[in-house]
Deep mutational scan, measured.
Amino acid sequence: VQTVGQWLESIGLPQYENHLMANGFDNVQFMGSNVMEDQDLLEIGILNSGHRQRILQAIQLL
Rank of each mutant, 00 (worst) to 15 (best):
G45L: 00
G24P: 02
L61W: 10
D40V: 09
L13F: 05
G32M: 14
N23S: 11
G12Y: 03
N48R: 04
L41T: 00
R52F: 02
E37Q: 15
Y16K: 00
R54Y: 01
D40G: 06
V35R: 13
V4R: 01
Q60M: 08
S33P: 07
A58S: 11
Q57M: 09
I44P: 04
V1I: 13
E17M: 07
I59R: 08
I55F: 03
G5K: 15
P14Q: 08
G24F: 04
T3Q: 06
G5N: 06
L62T: 05
A58V: 00
Y16V: 03
G45E: 03
D38R: 03
L8M: 02
M36R: 12
N27E: 10
N48H: 12
L47K: 13
A58E: 14
S33L: 11
Q53V: 09
V1S: 09
L47M: 14
V4P: 03
L42N: 05
L42S: 08
S10T: 11
T3I: 02
N27W: 06
D38Y: 03
V4K: 00
V28F: 09
A58M: 05
H19A: 14
M21N: 06
V35T: 14
V35G: 15
M36P: 13
E43H: 12
L8E: 04
P14E: 09
L41N: 03
V1G: 05
Q39L: 08
Q15D: 04
N23H: 11
Q39Y: 07
G24L: 05
Q57S: 12
G24W: 04
D26H: 09
L47W: 08
L56M: 12
N27V: 11
L62H: 05
L20H: 03
Q29E: 15
A58R: 04
L42Y: 10
L41W: 01
D38G: 05
W7D: 00
P14A: 08
L20C: 05
A22C: 08
V1N: 09
G32Q: 14
M31S: 07
Y16H: 02
L8T: 01
E43I: 05
L20A: 00
P14I: 06
Q57Y: 08
M31D: 08
L62A: 04
H19Y: 09
N23D: 04
Q2F: 12
G12N: 05
S10D: 09
R54S: 06
L47I: 13
Q39K: 15
M36Q: 10
W7E: 01
N34E: 11
V35E: 10
Q53M: 11
N23I: 13
E43R: 15
I44T: 05
D40E: 08
A58Y: 04
E37W: 07
E9K: 12
E43Y: 07
R52E: 02
L42Q: 14
L8F: 03
Q53R: 13
I46R: 01
Q57N: 12
G24H: 05
D26Y: 08
G50P: 05
V35K: 14
L20P: 01
G32L: 14
D40T: 14
N48D: 15
D40Y: 07
G5C: 07
M31G: 07
V28C: 07
G50D: 14
I55Q: 00
M36G: 06
W7M: 09
A58P: 05
N27F: 08
Q57T: 13
D26F: 08
Q53H: 11
M31I: 14
V35P: 13
Y16D: 01
P14T: 06
P14H: 06
N23F: 08
Q6E: 13
N48F: 03
Q39M: 09
Q15S: 00
N18R: 14
L42E: 11
M21Y: 06
F25L: 11
A58G: 12
H19Q: 13
N48V: 06
L8V: 01
I55V: 05
Q53N: 13
H19N: 15
N23Q: 07
N48K: 07
G12H: 02
V4T: 06
A58W: 01
L20Y: 01
M36A: 09
Q29N: 13
L41H: 03
Q15I: 03
D40M: 09
Q57F: 07
V4A: 03
M31E: 07
G32H: 13
E43K: 15
L20E: 00
E37D: 12
A22H: 10
L41G: 01
E17Q: 08
M31C: 10
D26M: 11
L20K: 01
L47H: 14
R52K: 01
Q6V: 05
L13V: 04
V4W: 04
V28T: 10
G24N: 06
Q15A: 03
I11Y: 01
N34T: 15
Q29A: 13
G45N: 04
F25N: 04
Q39H: 12
E37R: 14
F30L: 15
S10V: 06
Q6K: 13
N34V: 14
D26T: 14
I55H: 02
E43Q: 13
Q15L: 02
M36D: 06
V35W: 06
Q6M: 11
L56G: 04
H51A: 01
L47V: 14
G32S: 14
M21F: 05
Q39A: 14
L13S: 02
Q2H: 10
G12T: 02
V4C: 05
G12V: 01
L61T: 13
N34G: 13
E17R: 08
A22L: 10
E37G: 12
H51P: 00
M36N: 09
G50Q: 03
Q29M: 12
V4Q: 01
V1T: 10
P14C: 04
V28H: 05
D26N: 12
L62P: 05
L62G: 05
L47C: 11
S10L: 08
F25K: 04
D40W: 07
N48Q: 07
I46Y: 02
L56E: 02
I55P: 01
N48G: 02
D40F: 09
D38F: 01
F25W: 12
S33C: 10
L62W: 07
I55M: 10
W7H: 04
R52D: 01
G5M: 08
A22G: 08
I55A: 03
L41Y: 00
N34K: 14
Q29F: 10
T3A: 05
G50R: 10
N23E: 06
G32F: 13
N23Y: 08
G24E: 03
G45M: 05
M31L: 15
R52G: 01
E37N: 14
L41P: 02
Q2S: 12
I55K: 01
Q53D: 09
M36S: 10
H19W: 05
L62C: 07
